[in-house]
Every structure is written in C-alpha cells, then in structure tokens.
C-alpha cells in the first residue's frame, strides 16, 4: 500500500526562480486498488510519482510504501516497487533475456528465480519469439512487453506507472491495460498517471485531479461527478480547474 502525507517538492532551476513541482500531496492507495492521477502535462504527475518511487527526494512531507518510510530506507523501499514511465527505457544493446537477468540481479533475486520468472513472464506476455533479440531491434509493443516483464519480475507490492500508454498504438495500449487489471486482481497497489480521461474512467477505483502541482480533488469517480455536478471526467476536471483559477490564491 501507498500512503503520503503532505508531500512537497521544490525545484531550483539554475537560471530561474524556484518552482513548486508538487505543493502538498496527501493520498492513500490500498492493496488491490487502482488509483488514477489525472492532469495536463506539467501538472506535477511525474514529480509526484518520482517521489513515490524514491527517485527524487521530497522537499518536505513523508511517504510510506509497503509500510516503510521512503526517506529512511529508500533502497529497501524500491525492492517493493515496480516503476514504469516514459523515461524508463530498456538497454538497446542487451537482449530481452539479458535485460531481465540484469534487473533480476539488481533486485537481489537468485539465478534460478530469475530464470523461472523470465520463463513465466515470457509465457504470460507472449515474448518467446523475441526474448533473445537485442532490445534495439524490437518494436514499440515488444519493448513495452519487456518493460512490463521487468516491472513484474520481482513481484512488487506496489506499481507506479507514469503515463504508461502515452504514444502507444491501440494494441499495445490494450496489453498495458490488461496488465494493470491483472495486477489489481493479484492484490497490488497501483498508482498510475494519464491524461486520457476515458482510460481512467474504465480502470480506476479512485482518482485524483492534479493541476499546477496541487491536488484539486480526490475520490471515486461518482463522488467527483457529484461534487462538480458533471457526468464525465473531462467536464469534472475542467470545472475544478476553472474554480481553482477563479479563487485568487
């Protein structure tokens, strides 16, 4: 499970004023739950997810993953996380099998376990025909499957997925969405960001709207419709943003 308490991140770009990437994010994701993070580009989704993944350190606030505080033992925390984003690409000069072996080692898995998991995942995801090909020769869909295998290799309790479907074709998107659903059924806590409202509508148990680093609203989609008096996520989001801009901060 994931729990955060007033997470905040301030960036200091070298030649401009400090930027508040995320203002104060408090949320919880239960096991077996899919939590969607919605917002336009630059809203702070990636920053928030990177903090959860302990890739960056929060300026203030705390975060617990699988019961461990991320600032106290980030390396142990990452053992429980599968992290997938547009920036987590594969090593082109390794084959898919070598790729999985390498990441298996980094997660401290034994040789046998890595082999077994590789076979299992190759079977489930249908990777047998290209598992021994170099990753720079794979198609986008095939690479995405290898990435999913990498994320699932060590059986993490928590999945953090940053725009996993952006820029993918319909078939590859489906692979990802199926993978997310299956992960939910196996009891993992999943947080994923997207700017495709329909995707969120279908998949998510609960949602949060994020805009300019601020979480505008959190809840199941029905409660969000109710709160904003709308019937779909796009309208709900637009309403929340308009309201937020109307209130002088």
């Amino acid at each position: 499970m994931i729990r955060t308490d007033r997470l905040r991140k301030v960036y200091f770009p070298p030649r401009s004023a400090p930027v508040e990437g995320v203002k104060s994010a408090t949320l919880t994701v239960e096991p077996g739950e899919i939590f969607g993070l919605l917002g336009p580009n630059g809203a702070g989704k990636t920053t928030l997810l990177r903090m959860l993944g302990t890739i960056i350190v929060p300026t203030s606030g705390h975060c617990w993953i699988a019961g461990l505080r991320t600032d106290q033992n980030p390396d142990a925390v990452r053992q429980h996380i599968g992290f997938l984003s547009g920036n987590t690409k594969l090593y082109g000069r390794l084959t898919a099998r070598e790729e999985l072996r390498f990441f298996g080692y980094l997660h401290g898995l034994s040789k046998e376990r890595i082999q077994r998991r590789t076979e299992e995942l190759a079977e489930i995801l249908g990777m047998q025909e290209f598992i021994d090909r170099r990753c720079d020769t794979l198609s986008t869909g095939q690479s995405q499957k290898v990435s999913i295998a990498r994320v699932l290799l060590h059986d993490p309790e928590v999945l953090i997925l940053d725009e996993p479907t952006t820029g993918l074709d319909i078939m590859t998107c489906q692979t990802i969405l199926t993978f997310i659903r299956n992960a939910k059924h196996s009891g993992r806590s999943i947080i994923f960001s997207t700017h495709y409202m329909t995707e969120a509508e279908i998949l998510c148990d609960r949602l949060a709207f994020i805009h300019h680093g601020e979480i505008l609203a959190t809840g199941a989609k029905e409660s969000l419709y109710e709160k904003t008096g709308t019937t779909n996520l796009t309208d709900a989001f637009v309403r929340l943003v308009t309201d937020a801009n109307a209130v002088p901060s």
Binding site: G53, I55, D75, A76, V77, R78, Q79, I81, F83, S85, G86, N87, T88, K89, L90, Y91, G92, F103, L106, H107, G108, R150
Partner: peptide, 14 residues
C-alpha cells in the same frame, strides 16, 4: 539520453 538512467534508479541499488 537513451532514457535508461531512470530505469536503473528505480531498482533497489544505491
């Protein structure tokens, strides 16, 4: 540039 650094950072290594 190849976008693999973050993959590496997401693993339990220091």
């Amino acid at each position: 540039e190849r976008g693999t650094f973050e993959t590496l950072l997401s693993t339990p290594v220091t």
